[in-house]
Design a protein around this nucleic acid. Sequence first.
RNA 1: CGGGGUGUAGCGCAGUUGGCUAGCGCACCGUGUUUGGGACGCGGGGGUCGGCGGUUCGAGUCCGCCCACCCCGACCA
Length: 477
Amino acid sequence: MSEEKLPKQSENFSEWYNQLIQKAELADYAPVRGCMVVRPYGWALWENIQKALDGRFKETGHVNAAFPMFIPMSFLEKEKEHVEGFSPELAIVTIGGGQTLEEPLVVRPTSETIIGHMYSKWVQSYRDLPILINQWANVVRWEMRTRMFLRTLEFYWQEGHTAHETAEEAEEETLKILDLYTDFAVNEAAVPVIPGIKSEAEKFAGANRSYTIEAMMRDTKALQSGTSHNLGQNFAKAFDITYLDRNNELQYAWTTSWGVSTRFVGAIIMSHGDDQGLILPPRLAPIQIVIVPIYKNEEAKQKVMPVVKQLEKQLKQFRIKVDDRENVTPGFKFNDWELRGVPLRIEIGPRDVENNSLVVAQRDIPGKEGKLFLSMDHIADQLTTILDDFHNRLLQRATDFRDSHIHKTDNYEEFKNIVQQGWAYAYWCGNAACEAAIKDETKATTRCRPLDQEKSEGKCVYCGESAEYRTYFAKAY
RNA sequence: CGGGGUGUAGCGCAGUUGGCUAGCGCACCGUGUUUGGGACGCGGGGGUCGGCGGUUCGAGUCCGCCCACCCCGACCA
């Protein structure tokens, strides 16, 4: 429950974000720098994200397993790019049970290495492939600068790790997962994302190719919201994942990895929230509908509460909460649940009981405009439709916002202005030097080259050399 | 790691040139009146003043060291 008003998004987006997380009780600062405690409301949201993703993984033939959190230091060192990428941010355990360990143990920053090690034991023949394993886990990356959900020392995620017979199958898997992530983001979270390919500089340490779904937050910054990597044979060679193929010849397997983390909670907060607080997408919201009973005295309460209880039973198919707190006023409750982003609020007072009606307030439409005055008849069906419409409006609003802040440009001066308040969509020659110079001069990084883009003729927005594709450039989290 | 800032009740803060039993708002507990857009009265509980050491008759206040966190930078899937 919170008393003071939230800062306005337009005035201080970053404070808005930090305070909202605490006031809405999604998470709290832990006593360790850079770590967070995910509170029940935040975790319930994450659980719904998990459910939506996990179902999709299972439908596409993946299974869950669990690998250890401790990884021998030497494993990390087996893949050169991988260790170079991760060594600055490793947490390393050197003492166990009071004894200095013979070999330090790394707290996993990601599990390619230890899973690669196991796959080399499990894979002998092409008949053992593909392996399609996912794990839900926590990982640790010792970041310099942290932010709740977006970048914490420890975070929760799923990491899928697959091994395949051929390069083609691995690439197919990588793209299949990118599609799955896109479908999840759009249809569950109402977060419009742009699926694309990462530049060499931005790709995963040890991957041949990294794909991403990029989302625009309401301050126009980009957030990488999920990634899918084609690891080629890099890890197979480092960990000796070999198999006898159909011609009885020894081959290295082709592997992939992919992940979505608690960072996605940040994506939801910053894609949909407004000055009143959170707006949660109905398919993921821990509470989809809150019922606030309204009465002035005991007599009115006796009339209202039985109807509320009856309605609660009738609406079991929804994630529903009756706010029967006696110590706060309905007005307070309205603001409280709006802060927490509950999509729909049902108000039932004596007048409604008389009329067999109720009031439904929609979180995304402020004030009286958003209130629907409905009959109790067929109320569940009505609410189903209202929630679907809600989802569609959220998605539409986020998409419109994004599209109106993306600008195509072929001029570097214009480019510099665009990335101050949006994304630039510009030709880039692919040269890392241009990418680095742009980052240096504008703070904008390459986000991705969208997959649905046709090859065309253009000139790099920075150096003027010929270029075949446009790339999104933006400031990013 | 560099620059800046802050540590006093759960949160936000005040506490003057060192001086009485360390205060205020919100939150919390009890109670009564309230309740369709953030209610109010009355009565309560809660503190090793970040830590250690020093100066002093006396330290939240002055000095030294340490610790933690925040912001900016460097860094970063």
